[in-house]
Amino acid sequence: MIEIRGLEKYFGTLQVLKGIDLDIPKGEVLSIIGASGSGKSTLLYCINGLEAIQAGTVTVAGTDVHAKGTDINKLRQKMGMVFQQWNSFPHLTALENVALAPQIVKGKSKAEARDIAAKQLEHVGLGDKLHVYPSALSGGQQQRLAIARALAMEPDYMLFDEATSALDPELVGEVLDTMRLLAEEGMTMICVTHEMSFARDVSDRVAFFNQGVIEEIDTPENIFGSPKSEHLQKFLSNIR
């Protein structure tokens, strides 16, 4: 369970999050849509503790992310994050990329970490690329590698920050398929996305962000079928 209460975030004098209240129960797939600069990605960074916040609280599995005494590194193990840029570690093979964190963060043995890594790479369809360096992988494969790397920490939550935005159009499908697979397996997911079909088909709820507030949050049927707010109607009509 992720609970967000009165979250406010500033970059300098610019307020990017203006009081967010949001609960994400376990097992839910929440998609966040909205125009660029509306604060969607920043929200994910605040949930993961990669950005400091100025007001409010973010609680993950009962722990306050931004409290002083919180062991943020331990808490982050529960939250996998996938970024727009996949950021594979270029000096490591696919297997080593995935095995690194289980080994050094969780203290697993090398053999154990490699087993987990091989299993997760298989999971995302990269079972035949274990010993390949990222430079020899396509963008879509590298993004799936990033997903496997996050999954190897056995997280309870997965945060996706526009995971397909930097990909060539023909590579988007394979990454979305992997995300769909995770959703079907019951993973709790927060997906900032521009892929409306993904948001519609896979999500339990969809949140529409506009200028730092959640303007509308509802089932995909209602968000896409009968949008209430004027901004959302305009946003959707611009996309179609």
Binding site: L50, M79, N87, F89, V105, A146, M153
Partner: peptide
């Protein structure tokens, strides 16, 4: 971005 990816996996600053 690369460093944030590393930290998001639970690595400490020094790791």
């Amino acid at each position: 971005p690369m460093r944030r990816a590393a930290r998001s996996l639970g690595m400490t600053y020094w790791q």
